[in-house]
Design a protein around this nucleic acid. Structure first.
Lengths: 343, 343
DNA sequence: ATAGTTTAAATAAACGATTTAAACGACCTG
DNA sequence: CAGGTCGTTTAAATCGTTTATTTAAACTAT
């Protein structure tokens, strides 16, 4: 490796000061145009590489933004991340990604690392049980946080997420409209705000239609394809013989449909299934999945935008921002058939 | 935000020098044990946050490792990333992730950013058409690179990947063993080393079984679930009426099966389908997918390990490292049925 | 010509850590 | 008691930028 090229290398070979070089490379009008060109040309010729840690030590702006979610391999977060990425790219910000797998400790480690690196801000979907202090740690050290997808009680930090209560009621109403009366809810957990909101939305819809809410029709837990697949056994052996399932998300729904198919029943005909999120995959599943679009791209885009705005001081995006979900009707739901699915 | 706490803050409140504090916090035996304890306690009490950019400016080691792949949302890379993550975590290295979506330019930007941040090393699955210079840019600036999954010709950099030629021949042989003679190959591209290797493996297996290779049985292109789904139409209208398909990867295979099912045929009975990679999803697909395990976890783990070893100077992992793939037989393949799949 | 402006470049002090050589005191030892 | 050793601490240089302040040169206007 050749000797490292720095500002002073350029300065010396050109007989100017490092200050001039620094200014010139950032196109400051304080430097004469001709000098600027000469300097830039020389920088290129020498293969100069800007040292951001030296710069940020001085300026205390690193251009680094952290993003931490439950699991980046989960396509729901994947779609959010994609839109965050494209928004941050536009502003030439580097983003550091991490999973917390719902471990508060792993999440705290990440925040600490980010602080050490001088991160400018952080976008996060907080781990289950995140204490407000962990977020305050970031804020108190000058690193603003924006929440996505999940809320934390007792914390005044901007948050962007879908309107879960409303969204799940859309799905439930759709099934009720098709004549279903025994509707199970598969997956999710009461430990997150999202989990509580979705269950509430389901309950609300049933009540409004004068259908009695039977807690035994709730199969909590599953949040993945694998989970939905395994829940099928459980679902099919419910004594109430549900004719439809409102699932926690698309993954659970697809897994559940696979499980149902494995048992010899036809999802969409014998049992109606709804998903949630409207992942790309929903439309190519067999049968294609009736689901609720949860505004992933919108959530990611606005959260990133909000953070950038906050950093540039243009305005404070405080409070909660709800994205309105939309129904997507496909083949996995159909009218109630009176012969049911006796097996 | 309270006044920022730095080494000198601790030093002053304790009446020692910053040198002592620096040494103490890193547990140097040069500092008396009692002093060390006093200092660490004070650091905690004041909420001191280590400033890595200041440190790395001096030491030129940042603790940052870059990882760039085609698309982190692709579960194949996801599984690799997961094992890289856990290996790097163990060494308390921060990793910065990026997609290049096969854009050489995006990839170069990433490498440049990483250099600016003083990245210690980079693990990458190079974009299609990556010129060797782009990798050398990293190496020449003291940032060693390790390749995964894809090779680049004319470059002497360690690489870890599955043995594609061998792996795909396993799948092809499996189908031949079941009696199939008209076997299509769906997906992939000749633009990557992987693509060429897999096609070669397929051709080799057919030749060895004295089956004529018909180039028209190759449907190149698809690499995603969506792609496989769309390729089904194409596949089903081939005049040769193939009874089996060797797919580029699990995603294509699952998409293809969905497409086949949509056309009223039963994958695994009317048409045999093999995948490649053995993603978690393969076993819960309907029907469960016969596929080839491609050693993702192994690739990720060893690549990360190799980089860490190289950084610590313990040893150079030069050359190519091939992971041996293994067959996973499930429900999506079955013996040739002589009534075929006329439709 | 002279004072006053403008423009261009240079000087030097940060930023917050690490590290090396030197200082210091206490404690031997012959 | 001069000199050496050992354990602990520190002063000062350094890493590569940015930026406020100075300085120098070049115009302008009177």
């Amino acid at each position: 490796m050749a000797q490292k090229v720095k500002l002073s290398t350029i300065a010396e070979t050109l007989g100017v000061s490092t200050a001039t070089v620094s200014l010139a490379l950032r196109d400051s009008p304080l430097v004469a145009l001709s000098t600027r060109d000469r300097i830039k040309e020389q920088a290129r010729a020498l293969g100069y590489i800007y040292n951001r840690r030296a710069a940020s030590l001085r300026t205390s702006r690193s251009g680094i933004i952290g993003v931490v979610v439950h699991d980046i391999m989960n396509p729901f977060y994947g779609e959010i991340l994609k839109s965050i990425e494209s928004e941050l790219d536009r502003d030439r910000q580097t983003f550091i990604l991490s999973n917390h797998y719902d471990s508060v400790e792993k999440q705290r480690n990440f925040i600490e690392t980010l602080l050490q690196l001088g991160g400018d801000g952080v976008i996060m979907s907080p781990a289950i049980g995140t204490p407000p202090e962990d977020i305050l740690l970031a804020e108190d050290n000058g690193m603003p946080a924006i929440l996505i997808a999940r809320s934390i009680d007792g914390l005044d930090v901007p948050i962007f997420r879908g309107d879960d209560t409303y969204g799940i009621s859309l799905a439930t109403n759709h099934l009720i409209g098709l004549g279903h009366r025994v509707i199970a809810m598969v997956g999710g957990t009461d430990q997150t705000s999202t989990g509580r909101d979705r269950y509430q939305g389901y309950v609300n819809a049933l009540r409004k239609a004068n259908i009695e809410v039977d807690p035994a029709l709730r199969i909590p837990g599953p949040r993945s394809k694998q989970g939905g697949f395994e829940a099928a056994v459980n679902f099919l052996s419910l004594p109430q013989k549900p004719t439809a399932a409102v699932c926690w998300n698309d993954l659970v729904a697809i897994g559940l449909m696979n499980g149902i198919a494995r048992a010899g029943l036809v999802p969409g005909r014998d049992v109606s299934v709804t998903g949630y999120d409207d992942l790309e995959e929903a439309s190519i599943a067999t049968p294609s999945l009736t689901t609720v679009w949860n505004g992933q791209s919108e959530v990611g885009r606005s959260a990133a935008r909000a953070l950038l705005d906050k950093l540039s001081g243009s305005h404070e995006p405080d409070g909660i921002h709800l994205i309105k979900p939309e129904m997507r009707i496909r083949q996995s739901t159909g009218p109630l058939r009176h012969n049911g699915h006796d097996h």
